[in-house]
């Protein structure tokens, strides 16, 4: 695996100056939403095609409300606090004027990890993916660890 994703760096130029680690090979089967909820077998988007999934009760995948629905189903609630709170797991939704673009989840270390579309997983600073391509962080959501344990690392 290469140490840098130059394509992603071109689209997210902050990655050129902020540290990031590629943590998987490219895989078109799952996307950022799937990865954030721990599913690496399906592409989470609301189209009726094999390999795609979207919770039936969630609103449109093209809206921030739809993404919030997905994470509420998984026990997350909205917060304004993006800092590391060791007793909580957190996700951050990035959006542009066109709607939701990306989501990352926070690791126990405080770093964030996400899946770039059909590309690679990467560990990164939350702000490193902000810009014209993924937009900026517009929602933070958190869920309490169960018995002190995180559902996802």
């Amino acid at each position: 695996m290469t140490a840098r994703d130059f394509g992603l760096e071109q689209l997210c130029p902050k990655l050129r100056t902020m540290p990031y680690i590629l943590t998987s090979p490219k895989d078109p089967r799952y996307n950022c939403v799937a990865f954030a909820v721990g599913d690496v077998t399906q592409f989470w988007y609301d189209v009726s095609i094999n390999g795609y999934y979207w919770p039936p009760s969630a609103r449109s995948a093209d809206t921030i409300e739809g993404w919030v629905d997905v994470f509420e189903i998984h026990g997350f609630r909205q917060t304004d606090d993006r800092s590391l709170e060791t007793e909580y797991e957190k996700i951050a939704i990035y959006a542009s004027a066109d709607g939701p673009e990306h989501v990352a989840r926070q690791k126990a270390s405080g770093m964030w990890i996400s899946k770039a579309g059909k590309g690679r997983d990467l560990e990164h600073e939350l702000e490193a993916l902000e810009g014209n391509f993924y937009g900026k962080v517009v929602k933070i959501m958190k869920r309490k660890c169960q018995g002190g344990r995180r559902v996802l690392e």
């Binding site: 840098r4 130059f6 992603l8 071109q10 689209l11 579309g117 391509f133």
Partner: peptide, 20 residues
């Protein structure tokens, strides 16, 4: 690569791969 700026075609291609 990091040094060669994207053409519009390159940008569209990579954006399609890397967007949600």
């Amino acid at each position: 690569n990091a040094e060669t700026p994207f053409s519009n075609v390159d940008r569209a291609f990579h954006a399609d791969i890397l967007r949600r």
